[in-house]
Design a protein around this nucleic acid. Structure first.
Lengths: 355, 355
DNA sequence: ATGAAAGCGCTAACAT
DNA sequence: ATGTTAGCGCTTTCAT
């Protein structure tokens, strides 16, 4: 929307004052009459076809400017059978990083002159409805589904339609869909190893909701690290978390109220829970890392403010990768169907190590 | 997208397996043939016109289901000259709450069966381009512009087009645009009064960027509170801020490095700066509220984690209000053109008061 | 209550 | 290089 001489001219002229009655929109036909060429030629100019004599082009461009012509998206989409827009469906709950991912998606989309339609699926039925809506021919050219909880079966069926689908944070076997994941395993491994290397011997793990792919993979990462270090994970110290701040808060609160001794360290499988833990401790006059070392996962913005050591999820990059996959799928470019992005341990002060 | 019997049926049937070749999309014509009525009647059924005999309706509905028909958005938009979608343009930089606002926008939009196109304007030229793009007839039915830095003149010209525009956090005089603001003045007043009532006598103010409406209004609120309390704001304690975390961090860092004594209290005109201040203090072994009371503004998520007393900006409501205004403008409903939403002081522990 | 037909504004063969 | 024309899929008068 920027390189073209055409667009340049149009956006420069969009705000010229009242030419023509504001009643009827200006169409290619108007432009063609004004410039004495056919609508086909006008269309060619608009679409930067090389098969237009410079002189003609100039004439058309001038008419476009004079009339304040702007091309109609719907008509164009209808005629070309493509919308130049990609749909993005987010889960209703904000895991804290959807806006970052969205930015990433946008960055790449813009670079390829694609627009974004976004929707939030609130609840499972909502997800289905939203997705189904977008699948309706004509709205979008591709779909990016972020971390939704819908069944594999649903995704598979959706994928059978003509519309390319990119999944973020959720692979689906046996389906013709692209997916962008992060390396949860090695991220969790790094976090756990960090704690182990620091010499902690009673390490609690604040787990995620059962059946979530992130939760599962992160747990596996913990086991990997433990096995490598010859450390045995104490089942009694694996707390059932839910990925919410409140979950971490309550669990830690209960623990402290019960009078049980704090573990040496804790690995909360995502940042919000880690922060809930911190808050519960603070309210009990305890602090991190003095009374317990703490590591989180995701590196949401607040993690930095709180000095929380955590595993960085490259949200921006995930968005970009998903966006790229989507556009490539649409334009028929080569696309790697499964991408796994690396994470990185960010050491701050919550483990007692200098930052 | 939910009440209609029609849509219900369609979304239920969207994933039925392979009926018809996946090559050619199913159109109203197909449905009309299958059900032995005209396309006009099919259209009537689709749009829930009452002028269709129940028996006919059923027949058409069945055909729709059998064929897996889905209406084409572009064609519909072209024929009706409306898109049922509203465009949202956000600033490139994330003031930390755009995602909340977006949720609010979405909530209302969904309730009225509107879709969302979002764009981020990176930089001033980008803003113009994005807005201009959306102004192009046919993309969206209305535009919500969030807190952008473009000139009044630009907004005014844009407003002269047929497209309804809603501004968030930025009123424009003399233009036919709706705006949704928050009551910065009374919010800042409340924060300042809080500090004053606590008995602080050397209160620093970490200001915002010059010329920003939020910054200006919040400053005015401070003055109001001061005047009412008979307190004189010390010019030397008014620091020039920029609304960024880094700004607060550096300013406080420099202050501390310079060896100057800390003020009793500080009012940072937004949360990120307040958090930067906290971090700088922490790195110097100082803490809030022990060494200085601190209040922020906006109540971003992290404020809660950090126990920062702050003025709550009702982001979700702003979004909803903007969305409502936009839809009403489109549908011709009654709309209050200027809305000012109330803020609320949230007392946490950063002033030493119990939470 | 239903049908015939004329667009909505643009693009893309095909022809020249 | 340019023009003619037939759609794209849906809505909407205007008849009946």
């Amino acid at each position: 929307m920027n390189v073209s001489g055409y667009t340049q001219d149009v956006s420069d002229t969009i705000f010229r004052d009242g030419n023509g009655d504001p009643g009827r929109p200006v169409t290619v036909l108007d432009v063609s009459r004004q410039s004495g060429v056919s609508t086909a030629t006008v269309s060619r100019v608009i679409n930067q076809s090389p098969k237009v004599r410079p002189a003609t082009r100039v004439r058309v461009l001038k008419a476009i400017e004079q009339l304040g012509y702007m091309r109609n998206h719907s008509a164009r989409a209808l005629a070309r059978q493509k919308t130049d827009t990609i749909g993005v469906v987010f889960p209703g709950i904000d895991s804290g990083f959807f806006s970052e991912v969205l930015k990433g998606i946008n960055e790449y989309a813009v670079s390829r002159d694609y627009h974004l339609m976004v929707a939030f699926s609130q609840g499972s039925q909502g997800e289905h409805d939203r997705v189904a809506e977008y699948l309706q021919a004509g709205r979008v050219d591709a779909l990016i589904l972020m971390n939704l909880g819908m069944s594999d079966a649903f995704v598979r069926q959706a994928a059978q339609r003509e519309l390319p689908i990119v999944l973020i944070d959720r692979p689906v076997k046996d389906a013709r869909v692209a997916s962008v994941m992060i390396d949860n395993r090695s991220g969790a491994d790094a976090a756990m190893s960090h704690l182990l290397e620091l010499g902690h011997s009673r390490i609690a793990i604040l787990a995620g909701p059962d059946g979530t792919i992130d939760a599962d993979q992160r747990m596996e990462g913990c086991q990997l690290a433990a096995a490598r270090a010859g450390y045995e994970i104490d089942k009694g110290l694996v707390w059932p978390g839910n990925f919410f701040w409140e979950g971490g808060y309550e669990l830690m609160n209960n623990w402290l109220e019960s009078g049980k001794p704090l573990p040496d360290a804790m690995f909360a499988l995502n940042d919000p829970m880690a922060m809930g833990v911190m808050e519960a401790m603070r309210e009990h006059g305890l602090s991190v890392p003095n009374d317990m070392a703490l590591v989180g996962f995701d590196d949401v913005q607040a993690a930095r403010y709180l000095g929380l050591t955590t595993v960085h999820s490259p949200m921006r990059e995930m968005g970009r990768a998903a966006s790229q996959a989507a556009v490539n799928l649409v334009t028929g470019g080569r696309t790697q169907l499964e991408q796994v992005l690396e994470t990185e341990l960010i050491v701050r002060r919550s483990c007692g190590v200098d930052r």
